[in-house]
């Protein structure tokens, strides 16, 4: 057959979307932060990698941390198990066994804590664990208020007590977390709980005469990601918009108060990508897989890469409106 002449072939471009949602024109770096809290996101503020430390032996953890410091890591998440202090769960929980100040001292022995940022996570009584840590730190001639410690606080924990301690001791930040309660929960129910827990803390603080700006940017979310890839991305986007909406109720002066920081707890390597797509600030994750995702896939070269996806935007709108209704229900109870 004679060769065809293709020289006049042209592609046809369209400029209209098939489906459009009003919220699509919210951007990154400006409230309500649909597309991320910074205008250029990972291009200028890379995702922080947190290393999970949870060997039962404090001695082993100490060695592990030192090794990782030499590899250049400075963010760590400590899973602490203080099994002598009223465990919430009866089942064995795992984590670093810390039952007295000696264990704390072994854990932190010869580590320059001021160079690190540490997140504390426990399935036991959070307040008792922090108090114990603080006692140990004092014996090491330092204390929580002088260091970069973040406390993870579960939506089901006794919030106000921990929150009071948190304020009194001027701890750096509190991460409201769903890591214990995500199973069988819809994304909107999960968000409503996280938002309501934050709201209760903020309300408590503000009612004592403090400003919203003195507390809003000290609270962030720590989310365990499930395996519904695209729902997780939509959920992160919804979380930021809803946070801004709630903070707005308290009339903040600072833009930063409207910005919700997100931290991911990754238990399955395939959920690293949704955390990055969702615009999280940090991830406690698998080191190798996270490095490959960040360095090799090119997914951090543009902000909120899934924006505009008809499906994603619809899910974002749905989760946002449903979670808001649930939140209002909790608030008006």
């Amino acid at each position: 057959m004679k060769r065809k002449d293709f020289s006049d072939l042209k592609i046809e471009t369209q400029n209209e979307k098939d489906v459009y949602f009003e919220h699509e024109e919210f951007i990154a770096g400006t409230a309500p932060f649909l597309r991320g809290i910074y205008p250029t996101m990972y291009l200028e503020k890379p995702l922080e990698t947190k290393i999970l430390v949870e060997f039962s032996s404090p001695q082993k953890c100490n060695t592990f941390i030192k090794e990782h410091i030499t590899k250049g890591y400075k963010y760590f998440t400590f899973h602490i198990n203080s099994n002598n202090t009223n465990p919430i769960d009866e089942k064995e929980t795992g984590g670093i066994l810390i039952s007295n100040t000696e264990d704390v001292k072994t854990l932190f022995n010869e580590i320059k804590l001021q160079n690190l940022e540490i997140t504390i996570y426990t399935e036991n009584n959070t307040l008792n664990v922090i108090k114990l840590l603080n006692l140990g730190l004092r014996e090491l001639q330092t204390s929580l208020e002088n260091l970069n410690f973040n406390i993870q606080l579960n939506t089901s924990a006794n919030i106000i007590d921990v929150f009071e301690y948190f304020i009194q001791h001027n701890i750096k930040s509190i991460e409201i977390s769903n890591t214990r309660s995500i199973e069988n929960k819809t994304p909107e129910a999960d968000l409503a709980d996280l938002l309501f827990t934050s709201y209760v803390c903020i309300q408590h603080h503000v009612s004592k005469g403090n400003t919203i700006d003195s507390i809003a940017n000290k609270i962030s979310f720590n989310l365990k990601l499930g395996n519904k890839h695209f729902i997780e991305i939509a959920k992160a986007r919804s979380a930021r918009m809803l946070w801004a909406k709630i903070i707005h109720l308290f009339n903040p002066k600072k833009q930063a108060s409207y910005a919700l920081k997100l931290h991911a707890t990754i238990e399955n390597a395939t959920t690293i990508l949704p955390a990055i797509f969702g615009g999280y600030q940090s991830a406690t994750s698998f080191e190798t897989e996270q490095l490959v995702a960040l360095e090799e896939t090119g997914i951090t070269k543009t902000v909120d890469p899934w924006a505009g996806s008809n499906y994603m935007e619809q899910k974002t709108a749905e989760i946002t409106s449903k979670a808001w209704l649930l939140f209002e229900g909790l608030k008006n109870k």
Binding site: F21, E22, H23, E25, F26, I27, A28, G29, T30, A31, P32, P39, T40, M241, L242, A244, K245, H248, A317, E318, T320, S321, W324
Partner: peptide, 25 residues
């Protein structure tokens, strides 16, 4: 669907976004 958010915040154009980035650079 998200009227309750739209009521509190203004949408931004691509130009406004770029301007914000340039300002922060």
């Amino acid at each position: 669907m998200c009227d309750f958010i739209m009521n509190d915040f203004e949408p931004s154009s691509a130009a406004a976004w770029k301007q914000k980035i340039q300002f922060e650079l």
